[in-house]
Design a protein around this nucleic acid. Structure first.
Lengths: 110, 110
DNA sequence: GAAACACATCAATCAGAATTGATACGGAGA
DNA sequence: TCTCCGTATCAATTCTGATTGATGTGTTTC
């Protein structure tokens, strides 16, 4: 199995996790620091099972981690995960002064 | 209308655009420079209408731009869009040495 | 202008993800 | 132990987005 493909898969999963409105907002809230589920619930005005569903998605993708404290569970961002996503967008971003590939000779498609 | 909300909406749309396998791969290919549709079609082994659908998503999100050249259309990345996404992940990423918020006093939820 | 080509769009179908309501689980306090 | 509370999970439904096949549009070449 190709290592890079697996990395890509995990990376894609992270983008998928963040690219949904509720989860996008969760990430924004967690940027301010750790939050327990009930706090998120209050701030997002989301049903409990719905929030739990989205938190699981984020956790499965490795974007957040949880910490149990008595009956409460606190969620926070995983810095490394976000860093990887940034790195991907960095690699992908053409350098300043970058030029398109020279047009290929011959017909566009063979 | 709130300015920040609109920005968020556009940003979310960009994440949604990138967070799909076919489009994720398109972005990776375009990282190497401009490509025409038929080249992408060959490299992705995707049906033409399918590819066109995904390119439109990326374009609507502002992640790519197109350039007509005779009968060919060439797509390339929009550096600024990727930069904004990076910036978001940067803001959102806790600083090194960052500490969780101090636990609130009183019960977690009122 | 006719034919061939590159690409876009549309309508119908299909698939996967999100929502909801009910239920289960685990910890804390009486 | 019984009960309450915070959270997770499950099954059913609903919604959204992707795929497919056909058709449309603009461009080149003859």
């Amino acid at each position: 199995m190709n290592e890079t493909l697996l990395q890509n898969e995990a990376l894609l999963q992270r983008f998928q996790a963040v690219a949904e409105e509720t989860r996008f907002r969760i990430v924004q809230l967690l940027a301010g620091g750790e939050r327990c589920v009930c706090e998120l619930q209050a701030e997002l005005e989301a049903a409990q099972s719905r929030l739990s569903f989205h938190l699981k998605k984020l956790k499965d993708a490795g974007v957040v981690s949880d910490r149990r404290d008595g009956r409460w569970v606190h969620y926070s961002l995983v810095p490394g995960a976000l860093e990887e996503m940034r790195a991907f967008l960095g690699e992908v971003k053409p350098e300043e002064g970058w030029k398109p590939l020279a047009p290929r000779d011959g017909p566009c498609c063979s």
